[in-house]
Amino acid sequence: MHYRGIFPRDLFSELERLQREFDGSPSIRGAAPGYPAMNVGTTPKSVEVYAFAPGMTPEEFDVQVENGVLTISGECKDIVPPEGATIHIGEHFSGRFRRVVSLPDDIEPNSTTASYRDGVLHVCVARREAAQSRRISVQ
Protein backbone atom coordinates (compact mmCIF):
# COMPACT_ATOMS: atom_id res chain seq x y z
CA MET A 1 0.00 0.00 0.00
CA HIS A 2 2.80 2.32 -0.93
CA TYR A 3 0.64 4.77 -2.83
CA ARG A 4 -1.97 4.98 -0.14
CA GLY A 5 0.69 6.16 2.25
CA ILE A 6 1.54 9.07 -0.01
CA PHE A 7 -2.04 10.15 -0.48
CA PRO A 8 -3.85 9.16 2.70
CA ARG A 9 -7.59 9.53 2.69
CA ASP A 10 -8.05 12.02 5.45
CA LEU A 11 -11.05 12.16 7.71
CA PHE A 12 -12.32 15.48 6.41
CA SER A 13 -12.48 14.45 2.79
CA GLU A 14 -14.14 11.21 3.83
CA LEU A 15 -16.80 13.12 5.77
CA GLU A 16 -17.29 15.44 2.85
CA ARG A 17 -17.78 12.48 0.55
CA LEU A 18 -20.27 10.86 2.91
CA GLN A 19 -22.19 14.10 3.13
CA ARG A 20 -22.30 14.36 -0.65
CA GLU A 21 -23.50 10.79 -0.90
CA PHE A 22 -26.36 11.22 1.57
CA ASP A 23 -27.34 14.67 0.40
CA GLY A 24 -30.72 14.49 -1.31
CA SER A 25 -29.94 17.29 -3.77
CA PRO A 26 -26.67 16.69 -5.54
CA SER A 27 -24.88 19.37 -7.49
CA ILE A 28 -26.16 20.09 -10.98
CA ARG A 29 -22.71 19.13 -12.28
CA GLY A 30 -23.06 15.70 -10.69
CA ALA A 31 -21.48 14.08 -7.68
CA ALA A 32 -18.24 13.09 -9.38
CA PRO A 33 -15.35 15.47 -8.83
CA GLY A 34 -14.80 15.78 -12.58
CA TYR A 35 -12.61 14.36 -15.28
CA PRO A 36 -9.73 13.70 -15.14
CA ALA A 37 -9.28 12.63 -11.52
CA MET A 38 -6.49 14.63 -9.93
CA ASN A 39 -4.03 14.35 -7.08
CA VAL A 40 -2.09 17.34 -5.81
CA GLY A 41 0.88 17.41 -3.49
CA THR A 42 3.59 19.84 -2.43
CA THR A 43 7.26 19.65 -1.62
CA PRO A 44 9.34 22.61 -0.32
CA LYS A 45 10.53 23.15 -3.91
CA SER A 46 7.50 22.35 -6.03
CA VAL A 47 3.78 21.77 -6.45
CA GLU A 48 3.10 18.36 -8.03
CA VAL A 49 -0.14 17.78 -9.93
CA TYR A 50 -1.15 14.39 -11.34
CA ALA A 51 -4.10 14.10 -13.75
CA PHE A 52 -5.34 10.60 -14.55
CA ALA A 53 -6.33 10.92 -18.22
CA PRO A 54 -5.60 7.70 -20.14
CA GLY A 55 -5.66 7.21 -23.89
CA MET A 56 -4.31 10.64 -24.84
CA THR A 57 -1.13 11.78 -26.55
CA PRO A 58 1.09 14.49 -25.02
CA GLU A 59 0.12 16.95 -27.81
CA GLU A 60 -3.57 16.67 -26.96
CA PHE A 61 -3.16 18.38 -23.58
CA ASP A 62 -3.32 22.10 -23.06
CA VAL A 63 -1.53 23.01 -19.81
CA GLN A 64 -1.45 26.65 -18.73
CA VAL A 65 -0.37 28.60 -15.67
CA GLU A 66 -1.93 32.02 -15.46
CA ASN A 67 -2.52 34.31 -12.49
CA GLY A 68 -1.61 31.62 -10.04
CA VAL A 69 -4.02 29.12 -11.55
CA LEU A 70 -3.07 25.91 -13.33
CA THR A 71 -5.50 24.83 -16.05
CA ILE A 72 -5.40 21.41 -17.66
CA SER A 73 -7.69 20.93 -20.64
CA GLY A 74 -8.03 18.78 -23.70
CA GLU A 75 -10.29 16.49 -25.56
CA CYS A 76 -10.58 12.78 -25.10
CA LYS A 77 -11.60 11.11 -28.32
CA ASP A 78 -14.31 8.54 -28.26
CA ILE A 79 -13.51 4.93 -29.00
CA VAL A 80 -15.30 4.39 -32.30
CA PRO A 81 -16.64 0.86 -32.66
CA PRO A 82 -16.45 -0.76 -36.08
CA GLU A 83 -19.61 -0.67 -38.13
CA GLY A 84 -22.23 -3.18 -37.10
CA ALA A 85 -20.73 -3.62 -33.62
CA THR A 86 -22.78 -3.40 -30.44
CA ILE A 87 -21.67 -1.36 -27.43
CA HIS A 88 -22.45 -3.33 -24.26
CA ILE A 89 -20.70 -1.09 -21.73
CA GLY A 90 -19.67 2.50 -22.41
CA GLU A 91 -18.02 4.02 -19.33
CA HIS A 92 -14.97 5.53 -20.99
CA PHE A 93 -15.01 9.33 -20.77
CA SER A 94 -15.07 11.16 -24.06
CA GLY A 95 -15.32 14.80 -25.01
CA ARG A 96 -13.74 18.02 -23.81
CA PHE A 97 -12.48 18.36 -20.27
CA ARG A 98 -11.04 21.19 -18.19
CA ARG A 99 -9.83 21.24 -14.63
CA VAL A 100 -8.36 24.08 -12.62
CA VAL A 101 -6.07 24.13 -9.59
CA SER A 102 -5.24 27.26 -7.57
CA LEU A 103 -1.54 27.36 -6.85
CA PRO A 104 0.20 28.83 -3.81
CA ASP A 105 1.51 32.42 -4.00
CA ASP A 106 5.18 31.47 -4.12
CA ILE A 107 5.22 29.65 -7.47
CA GLU A 108 7.59 30.29 -10.37
CA PRO A 109 5.29 29.85 -13.40
CA ASN A 110 8.14 29.99 -15.92
CA SER A 111 9.71 26.81 -14.65
CA THR A 112 6.75 24.50 -15.05
CA THR A 113 7.31 21.09 -16.60
CA ALA A 114 4.76 18.54 -17.76
CA SER A 115 5.13 14.91 -18.77
CA TYR A 116 2.74 12.14 -19.75
CA ARG A 117 3.41 8.53 -18.78
CA ASP A 118 1.16 5.47 -18.54
CA GLY A 119 -1.92 7.65 -18.95
CA VAL A 120 -1.03 10.10 -16.17
CA LEU A 121 -0.18 13.74 -16.85
CA HIS A 122 2.30 15.04 -14.29
CA VAL A 123 2.74 18.80 -13.96
CA CYS A 124 5.51 20.12 -11.73
CA VAL A 125 5.37 23.82 -10.84
CA ALA A 126 8.51 25.14 -9.13
CA ARG A 127 8.29 27.32 -6.01
CA ARG A 128 10.50 30.35 -5.43
CA GLU A 129 13.71 29.87 -3.48
CA ALA A 130 12.77 32.54 -0.96
CA ALA A 131 9.80 30.56 0.21
CA GLN A 132 11.85 27.47 0.91
CA SER A 133 12.76 27.22 4.54
CA ARG A 134 16.44 27.58 5.27
CA ARG A 135 18.23 26.23 8.24
CA ILE A 136 19.90 29.03 10.19
CA SER A 137 23.04 27.95 11.89
CA VAL A 138 23.41 29.17 15.46
CA GLN A 139 26.71 30.86 16.13
Partner: peptide, 8 residues
Protein backbone atom coordinates in the same frame (compact mmCIF):
# COMPACT_ATOMS: atom_id res chain seq x y z
CA UNK B 1 2.96 16.04 1.14
CA UNK B 2 -0.44 15.18 -0.34
CA UNK B 3 -2.94 18.00 -0.19
CA UNK B 4 -5.70 16.64 -2.42
CA UNK B 5 -6.26 13.08 -3.59
CA UNK B 6 -9.02 11.70 -5.80
CA UNK B 7 -7.04 8.59 -6.63
CA UNK B 8 -6.20 7.21 -3.20
Amino acid sequence: EAIHAEVD
